[in-house]
């Protein structure tokens, strides 16, 4: 059976010197040559050599954006450097350090902060608001650029957690009173919009019978600290 097939294959591939066969041979030679040429030219070169115009423009754009950003960084840093060099007594250094300590303090939650922001009140008539929902609310606020957040009387910091418990939801071990009150510093318009996204925080809280009210403030002070 197999030998028969092999024979058939041999019969098919037996050389027959006709002009047509020669032509087929030449065409095959061309293909082999072209394949090798192409393989040779596409290996060892960067992707830029064969990239199309729009791809190259995209790459260039990326590089330019990056360059701009780095230039800005350089400017910032050299400004800091000049101001540090200029004063011998270390005033600028002190101010710089203070400024940083403030920033880090606010980020770490050890310092009070104030600025424009919103207060958010979430009722829970059916006792169905879970830690999950509150966490989603917090994440939505953070995504929308909330820099400092306080829930109830507790400052939310980087390792804060919500926990479902028998007495309701707790934040970092402190049971939260209903209605849940969020204070968030950030652009009030952006924060409000983020909460009202269809299918977002407000919708999912509505679904468990909770009502959400948002108040915008030009000046909001968050005094809870760690």
């Amino acid at each position: 059976m197999i030998t028969e097939r092999l024979k058939r294959l041999a019969r098919l591939t037996r050389p027959r010197a006709t002009p047509g066969q020669a032509l087929a041979g030449i065409l095959c030679l061309l293909v082999g040559f072209a394949v090798v040429a192409q393989v040779g030219s596409s290996t060892g070169e960067t992707r830029f050599a064969t990239a199309r115009q729009d791809e190259l423009v995209g790459v260039l754009d990326d590089q330019n954006t990056r360059l701009d950003r780095l230039h800005r960084d350089v400017d910032d840093l050299s400004r800091t450097k000049t101001s540090l060099e200029k004063d011998g007594r270390g005033d600028a250094a002190l101010n710089e350090a203070r400024r940083r300590a403030d920033t880090y303090g606010i980020l770490a939650g050890t310092r009070p902060a104030s600025g424009p922001g919103i207060t958010l009140s979430i009722t829970d008539p059916q006792h169905k608001v879970t830690a999950d929902l509150l966490l989603n609310t917090l994440q939505e606020l953070r995504d929308a650029g909330a820099e400092v957040v306080q829930v109830g009387g507790n400052r939310v910091v980087v390792n804060s957690y919500f926990l479902d418990g028998p007495g309701g939801v707790s934040l970092d071990g402190h049971t939260l009173a209903v209605p849940y009150r969020f204070l968030a510093i950030g652009d009030p318009r952006t924060l409000t919009t983020a909460l009202n996204i269809p299918g977002g925080v407000r919708d999912s809280l509505d679904r468990v019978g909770s009502s959400v009210s948002v108040t915008r403030h030009d000046q909001l002070t968050i005094s809870a600290t760690r």
Partner: peptide, 16 residues
């Protein structure tokens, strides 16, 4: 068969 030989010859030519 000539075709196969042609293909092989093309590859060899390209390599050379």
């Amino acid at each position: 068969m000539i075709a196969v030989i042609g293909l092989a010859a093309g590859v060899v030519l390209g390599l050379i």
